[in-house]
Design a protein around this nucleic acid. Sequence first.
DNA 1: GCTTGATCTGGAGCATGCTCCAGGTGTGAC
DNA 2: GTCACACCTGGAGCATGCTCCAGATCAAGC
Lengths: 137, 137
Amino acid sequence: MVPPVRGLTIADAASTLGLSVDTLRYYERDGLLLRAVPRSASGHRRFGPDDLRWIDLVTKLRSTGMPIRDVRRYAELVRAGDGNESERLGLLHAHRRLVLDQLAAVQENLAAIDKKIGIYEDRLLDPERTPGRSVEA
Amino acid sequence: MVPPVRGLTIADAASTLGLSVDTLRYYERDGLLLRAVPRSASGHRRFGPDDLRWIDLVTKLRSTGMPIRDVRRYAELVRAGDGNESERLGLLHAHRRLVLDQLAAVQENLAAIDKKIGIYEDRLLDPERTPGRSVEA
DNA sequence: GCTTGATCTGGAGCATGCTCCAGGTGTGAC
DNA sequence: GTCACACCTGGAGCATGCTCCAGATCAAGC
């Protein structure tokens, strides 16, 4: 009796992860995964728990703005095995810094936009008493 | 005596705003500005304070992730003049919601990445006592 | 006046990150 | 077996947002 190939089909993996099947295949082709995804006898991908966990991390990195190229670099380091932990750490730290900076910048800019929203709300609530409004408002 | 055309050259405007001259020309072409930028007698752009203030707002919208198309829509509303304030407000509110959602998502994902960073730091500090580490680390 | 460098226009090109397609094979219900 | 549908590969296409280029004109120091 042949051991059955376990794991999710690409469609199931995609819906579990919130990605498209095309994106999953693209990630594999582009070297973002730790290994070639295992296949069934007929050549269909079967995503195991480890694959799903890794891809979940990849989506976290991606959705915080890490470029594909850096995710690939990180995957390469992990694939290379023990001994480069400090390099992995450096990569993650650098990313963390970038994300924090971007968060701060977005929050600052959002504050300015909120101010603009406040101006419109005041104007709509009290259309008469419109103070000197800037030309670009 | 001809009144001199005032305002910053495109290079000065670009460096003031932190954009490239190409981007400024692109924004004008693409309808993101409130008006055609005034020109000197010879046809060179001269950015006035109002232009700069507006473009500064545009950069805040852009850097919080508003697509070009929506910025253009907003500019169209402002250009159309009084009477559509609630539509402008709706656009800004919708954007604000999106930004807040994205901020929350990024913060959540960053927390997961921070956890990973913590794992690497522990491992580097105490390489002996390495607990069962996940295969995808 | 000459030269160097800025600016102009219209349009092409490019980096990123998917997304879609054709043509073919596999799968599962009936 | 048949039908509908999922999956495969290699490669093309696309949306976004700039960025660059050619060829011409303008500006300013000497």
